[in-house]
Amino acid sequence: MAKYINPYTDFGFKKLFGEEANKDLLIDFLNQLLPAHHQIADLNFRNVENLADLSAERKAIFDIHCKALSGERFIVEMQKAKVKYFKDRSLFYVTFPIREQAQTGEWNFRLEPIYFVAILDFEYDEAEERRKFRRDVALKDQDGDLFFDKLHFKFLQMPLFNKKENELKTKFDKWCYFLKNLESFDHIPNILNEPIFQKAFGTAELASFTAQQRDNYEQSLIQYRDLKSALETAVEEREVEIAKRMILAGSDNDFINQMTDLPFGYIEKLRAELKK
């Protein structure tokens, strides 16, 4: 039995980052991702579970209304997700905090800045994108110049974060190391033995949960594992189909392995099947 929760479960994610008592954890984490002019002084949650639209799908998404140190207001949409068409959904989800800013009567259409932050425990889309652990995306023109400075996407593909304890240089590195390895820790590593992480470990320790919280977490963990298994099967099936097409197109095994990550022995097996 693990000592600490899995932070990618709905329960674990909300426990660490979605409770009023743990706002300091969320502020510290987000401030490692946000630019200097949008460092957070305070934040407020909006309970999306009470919203009429897509309440079931958005239960692991937090609408976070932030106040910067400068006094400016901005919005963070934060989620962890294991879904198909992830990019499409990400773009769709940011339409919620955009349209919710609409005002009745006379309005000049001035919007507060929006950041979409996604912590992913899977790798998405094409093979070349698997090399990028962190992607900071904004609207730019054909010359690569920033066109609009009020909509930013920040994607973290956690499986691609592979730094060891002795390689952690920044607070951001430490947070990623914490999230990536939390469920496997049996004690607080020396590199994370500082107040903010001590609180995070205390929050995540299963021994501190009530019987009801423990039961809720176990149910959330089962749902997480079932969904992860289904998605991994879907990804594997897709890679097999890609490999078959590449074989028929004349690609060699090295290139197919590079593009799909399928083992060489399995690629040879597919070749034999296609010759029948």
Rank of each mutant, 00 (worst) to 15 (best):
A56D: 08
A60R: 10
E106W: 05
F153Q: 11
A56I: 05
S251F: 12
R135E: 13
F116A: 14
P7F: 03
K132Y: 11
L33G: 06
L156N: 07
L111H: 10
F62K: 14
P195H: 07
A81R: 09
E232C: 11
Y4T: 10
M78N: 06
V83C: 04
E236S: 10
Y124T: 10
E57P: 03
I267L: 11
K154G: 00
K180Y: 02
K275F: 00
H187F: 00
F122P: 02
D254L: 15
Y224W: 13
I222R: 11
F153S: 08
V240T: 11
A21V: 05
F96Y: 14
S208A: 09
D24M: 08
H38G: 01
F96K: 12
D252W: 05
K199V: 06
L30P: 01
T95N: 09
E183S: 14
L69C: 01
I247P: 11
Y177N: 07
Q212R: 10
P35E: 01
F17G: 07
Q219E: 12
F255H: 09
K169I: 11
K244F: 05
E165Y: 05
K180T: 10
F153H: 14
E194P: 07
K87H: 15
D145G: 03
I196W: 03
F255V: 07
Y115R: 04
F29M: 10
I119C: 03
I191V: 15
E183A: 15
I40L: 04
L33D: 02
E273T: 11
T104C: 04
E126S: 04
H37P: 00
H152M: 08
K154M: 08
M158C: 06
L139S: 06
K163H: 02
H152A: 07
F148C: 01
K140I: 12
I98E: 11
I27L: 02
A127E: 12
H65M: 04
I75L: 10
S229E: 11
I64Q: 04
N216C: 14
A127T: 11
L33T: 01
E123H: 09
P7A: 06
L111K: 15
A118M: 07
A230Q: 14
I40M: 02
